[in-house]
Design a protein around this nucleic acid. Structure first.
Length: 696
RNA sequence: GGGCACUUGGCGCAGUUGGUUAGCGCGUCGCGCUUACAUCGCGAAGGUCGUGGGUCCGAAUCCCUCAGUGCCCACCA
């Protein structure tokens, strides 16, 4: 008896551990993650047969391990790609990793530190060898973790941003800009991380609010007994002052303008000048000008041909240009001493508490100093124009649309991009004498086409470029997305992707950021371990609404687990009802009212599901499926079907179940594939992953 | 300083063009081991939809005010 056989074979509850590894291997063996190996399309899929659907992964850092944001992001990726695959598209999800210059260099330095060494002990060449070793050992960890989630990437196409071919693409891109005159070298005041000892772009800086002070310092004017008082949060920079500036409309200082102030603690005299950048309302309305250590002051300095005296060096210490007593002191030590000395001289008028934004390195959290430094820059003018037009014209669309504004605002206020970094791990700038490497984002900006083999005109570029959907987090819209857009427009003469899908940020239950260091992170792999990958995926999908944030609750994953169990048991029931192997009908024209009803509800569900997915409403899609399967199918229809043993009902049960499995597959791929493989279907195509997506 | 988003039963959230008794998951309380599932079924309690106005025959849903929360951008020393 078939009936008995299936009951004995299938456990009463679904056990992901027995299924997931096995099924993933089954998929990999099929080769169908690779678009070139997809089976010939079936009739229903033919209209899409040659159309590609492509996603490139936002390449995770080789230092990374899977966090909640990744889990959410790749669940979305996999839902998109699996559905398109079932619809007959040639689907490519191209995976890979980013060499992540600073982050990786730091990880290896940390490892060296445990051995009591620094990178200087090894020397540059040995150090880079060591980083490669590290990459070979740990670099693919995150990709393996993606497999646990069920991600259907084409692993045969895995790329790394420092692969030989990829590096050649980076050089090509650099030289292209260079020859065009868009890359220039110059000494500018740049963001300098004293921890990493490298320059950083504006986007690589995070501000942290700190309680500080506003010191009011008296600068004696000329030979008189008069003072001009300046307010500053950073007294130590006064050693590099080369002017005091006031607003031209500020009547209070009219008789000071043109005179010279005597800079305390030094024996220098500096001019008192007028500049429109000065805000009358802040502090005293008179500002000390330090062109070497402040961007505004650099601008004022340029306008008035002021000297820039660098008093802070690359280690964050007071330089040889500072008066002897302060040389070698750290910035904070110098600040303390200077304040004390000023007080001693009676030149400190008052101190106010002041809350200000202190710039920190996004990788090592050290304080950022602004110092003049020789760097390479990419001119952004023309590129920004290209990038703006692509979005304004709708060639690339953001979803949700509101993120377009974030992108356009940044493009409208863009400055030239400092692309050189003074670290060892990365793409060396391909110009003689230069020891610098490129900003890691310079190479990831080329990802959509360089990962497909550019500058060679490869088949992949012909077949799969431009890509369709880029799905990523909002915090790298400008750091990465915008730079891919202008790079692609410049090198490929086309946008890199048609849609940018910005997914929400996963927060803790109380709305806090999930972070390892704060101990607020939840490990998605642990959730997969406890509840199963399908449950984790479904629970996360359930969370997806149009909001900017998600407050993660584990209850949703529990719900996902229960749902999987429901799918499992409904399937067991259907199998019990079947006499043995059965032909799966292509269509049901039901005559019995209950059967008619469920078929109608099924059709409605397919339509609603398609609508939701086409507009990226994944949470809505999950709810639609859940309600249909649990309530319409299980609670109502199956209960009624228990009283019906006719042939039409059996067919309807099998038909509805298999259609449900297809619809559910992109969301919960493991369990649906497992059940599909067990179902006694005579004319089963083979693998659910490439079966037809249901049509209403 | 500018911008974006959020504020719905104990908790986390749906409610896309305004329209009959505002839904879901978890939790709570009853009753059920009925031959797929107790990771279940049936039923119940529980909501002035942040505040104050406005538009409308009618608003959680549109407009304005205010308040709270979170995030992003910004050169205010």
């Amino acid at each position: 008896m078939i009936k008995v056989k299936y009951m004995q074979e299938l456990p009463k509850s679904y056990d992901p551990k027995q299924v997931e590894g096995k099924i993933y291997g089954f998929w990999e063996k099929s080769g169908f993650f690779n678009p070139d190996k997809l089976p010939a399309p079936k009739d229903e899929q033919k209209k899409n047969r040659k159309k590609p659907y492509t996603i490139v992964i936002p390449p995770p850092n080789v230092t990374g391990s899977l966090h909640m944001g990744h889990a959410l992001q790749h669940t979305i990726h996999d839902i998109l790609i699996r559905r398109k695959r079932m619809q007959g598209f040639k689907t490519l999800w191209l995976p890979g990793t980013d060499h992540a210059g600073i982050a990786t260099q730091r990880a290896v330095e940390k490892e060296l530190k445990k051995e009591g060494k620094t990178k200087f002990d090894l020397g540059k060449e040995e150090f880079i060898k060591r980083v490669w070793q590290w990459k070979e050992t740990y670099g693919n960890k995150i990709l393996d973790q993606l497999k646990k989630l069920g991600s259907s990437c084409d692993w045969s196409r895995t790329r790394f941003t420092m692969d030989k071919e990829y590096s050649e693409a980076v050089n090509e891109a650099f030289m292209h800009y260079y020859k065009k005159g868009w890359i220039y070298r110059g000494k500018r005041v740049v963001n300098w991380c004293v921890g990493c000892r490298t320059s950083l772009s504006d986007l690589e800086i995070e501000f942290s609010e700190e309680k500080g002070h506003l010191w009011y310092i008296k600068y004696p004017v000329g030979d008189s007994e008069e003072f001009i008082v300046v307010a500053t949060t950073r007294p130590e920079t006064m050693l590099g002052d080369t002017a005091v500036a006031v607003n031209p409309k500020d009547e209070r200082y009219k008789n000071f303008v043109g005179k010279r102030a005597r800079l305390p603690l030094t024996n220098r005299e500096i001019p008192i000048i007028e500049d429109r950048l000065v805000d009358k309302g802040f502090g005293t309305g008179a500002v000390k000008v330090t062109p070497a250590h402040d961007l505004n002051d650099a601008e004022i300095g340029q306008r008035h041909s002021l000297e820039a005296i660098q008093v802070i060096d690359e280690r964050g210490r007071m330089s040889q240009n500072a008066p002897a007593p302060y040389q070698g002191l750290s910035v904070l030590e110098a600040r303390e001493k200077i304040v004390a000395d000023l007080r001693g001289l009676g030149l400190l008028e008052k101190i106010e508490d002041y809350l200000h934004q202190v710039p920190k390195c996004y990788r090592c959290n050290s304080t950022i100093e602004l110092i003049p430094s020789e760097q390479w820059f990419l001119k952004m003018g023309e590129l920004a124009k290209l990038a703006k037009n692509a979005v304004k014209s709708g060639k690339t669309k953001f979803a949700p649309k509101r993120w377009e504004k974030v992108y356009l605002d940044w493009m409208n206020n863009i400055k030239d991009w400092c692309i050189s970094r003074q670290i060892w791990w990365g793409h060396k700038i391909p110009v003689e004498g230069s020891e610098d490497v490129l900003d890691t984002w310079f190479s990831s900006a080329l990802w959509p086409f360089a990962a497909m083999g550019w500058p060679k005109n490869t088949d992949d570029l012909k077949n799969f470029y431009p890509t369709d959907t880029l799905c990523t987090a909002r915090d790298i819209i400008n750091l990465w997305v915008s730079r891919m857009i202008f790079s692609s427009l410049e090198f490929m003469k086309d946008v890199p992707f048609k849609t940018v899908l910005i997914h929400p940020t996963v927060l803790t239950r109380d709305g806090k950021r999930m972070s390892k260091s704060l101990g607020t992170g939840i490990d998605p792999l642990e959730l997969c371990e406890r509840y199963g990958a399908d449950a984790t995926r479904f629970g996360l999908t359930w969370h997806l609404t149009g909001n900017q944030d998600i407050r993660f609750i584990e209850d949703n994953i529990v719900m996902g687990k229960k749902f999987c169990n429901k799918i499992w048991n409904a399937s067991r029931f259907v199998m019990m009802q079947l006499p043995g192997e059965m032909e799966l009908p292509k269509k049901i024209s039901a005559k019995i009212p209950t059967n008619k009803e469920i078929i109608k509800a099924l059709e409605k569900t397919v339509a609603s599901l398609d609508k939701s997915l086409d507009s990226y409403e994944f949470g809505q899609a999950a709810r639609t499926l859940y309600n249909f399967f649990w309530h319409d199918f299980c609670d109502v229809y199956i209960e009624k079907a228990k009283n019906q043993s006719d042939e039409e009902t059996k067919k309807t049960l099998l038909y509805t179940l298999s259609a449900s499995l297809k619809m559910l597959h992109p969301f919960v791929p493991f369990i649906t594939e497992e059940i599909y493989q067990i179902l006694p279907i005579k004319n089963r195509g083979g693998i659910l992953m490439v079966e037809n997506w249901p049509k209403k």
